[in-house]
Design a protein around this nucleic acid. Structure first.
Lengths: 207, 207
DNA sequence: GCAGCTATTATTCAAGCGTATAATAATACG
DNA sequence: CGTATTATTATACGCTTGAATAATAGCTGC
């Protein structure tokens, strides 16, 4: 009657592992397949432990969604340098790995499909989306200002919506069927499209 | 010991009702919540009937996905008139109801999240996506030709990818947070963006 | 108007779900 | 080094799930 041996994880670490295991399971088996037991196996613990760290499975899944949004936005939100560089980096980061890969969109889609169903997820989503678009809008305002172009709020809003849509749409295409595109093709198309939209070079001209 | 009374549905009709009920449940309760019993209730029959029309629940769900793709593509694929009109209609149709609404994206996202998991859904997805983009690419080729612009395959491909991304991305934005946009705003942004991308008017200039 | 066919209902089943509880192994502390 | 604490395991419970089966009600053709 021997029990499994185990080690007690340091502060907060096990929590993080469980969230990561949750995302692994969702991306591999879908929301349906992400059962408490599967998640526990993935995390290398037993199922009961989930309820030691979370009030319920639903709460754990909600925190996992927060983690997804964070991973999709954090890299793009900490671009640095002059506005032109930041704009280029913003586009490139969102359209290359690890932001653009099939795991990301599986997770994103799984949660989006629940946003209408679950008010908790809905609130998490809304916060994340607005923050993302607002930071793009500010970036565009800075960029247009340095180019001496009109940068009133209404103009920036329209550009932010269009470019956000373009980048999101290309992100989806790339994630779902990356093999249909050549290396760097999506980024190149995005760059020249943004130049056409804004009517300004963003420093990507061929030498 | 009275049984419920019922009526025998005419050829194929019940099948269609079950598929529609499946989509209703997925959009309202998510893939998890779309159980055989819920679907049967929605269709006004008992659960056992599902297996009289489909080999398994999974097969019914796969056919429901085919129906979703059809409803998302059929309206846009049968635009008529000269190329310029067709291009304008293509954009408008994809960014207004019924194609752009929260139910559509719930369904789309639910299935997309399973594409990585389920090879059957994956194949259905790939067919639908390629058909959609190819028809857009042909439309663009026609349009550019009438405008006397270069319309070689490579150019059309790049434009199709960009415009498909733009429209898809705006579609997602509109579906997820339609209340953040003014009436007709997304369509207007899409129209002027496409004009900027192609470097050509598409007949939407304000008079 | 009745005989036969089958679409539909009703019931049952094993498997898997999230959760609750109790036992116990690993650590921290005096 | 012994003892208290708690993170972790192990097990069990009630419920829901997709599916299989048997009974039957509604149609169709004669």
């Amino acid at each position: 009657m021997n029990r499994r041996s185990f080690h007690r994880a340091p502060e907060g670490e096990r929590r993080q592992e469980l969230i990561e295991a949750t995302l692994d399971c969702i991306s591999e088996f879908g929301l349906k397949g992400a059962t408490v037991r599967q998640i526990a196996i993935r995390a290398g613990v037993t199922a009961g432990l989930v309820r030691h760290y979370f009030e319920s499975k639903d709460q754990m899944v909600a925190e996992a969604y927060r983690a997804v949004i964070a991973s999709l936005t954090e890299k793009a939100s900490k671009v640095e340098g002059d506005p032109e560089t930041r704009l280029r980096d913003f586009i490139a980061i969102n359209l290359t790995e690890p932001v653009a890969d099939s795991r990301s969109i599986s997770l994103w889609a799984a949660f989006i499909s629940q946003v209408r169903v679950d008010p908790v997820l809905s609130e998490i989503h809304r916060e994340g989306y607005l923050a993302f678009r607002n930071s793009l809008q500010e970036l565009l305002a800075d960029f247009l200002a340095t180019k001496g172009k009109p940068a009133d709020a209404e103009t920036c809003r329209a550009f932010a919506i269009a470019i956000n849509g373009l980048v999101d749409g290309l992100w989806v295409e790339g994630c779902l069927a990356g093999d249909l595109f050549r290396e760097g093709e999506l980024v190149a198309i995005a760059m020249s499209s943004v130049e056409a939209l804004l009517g300004t070079s963003i420093g990507t001209a061929k030498q």
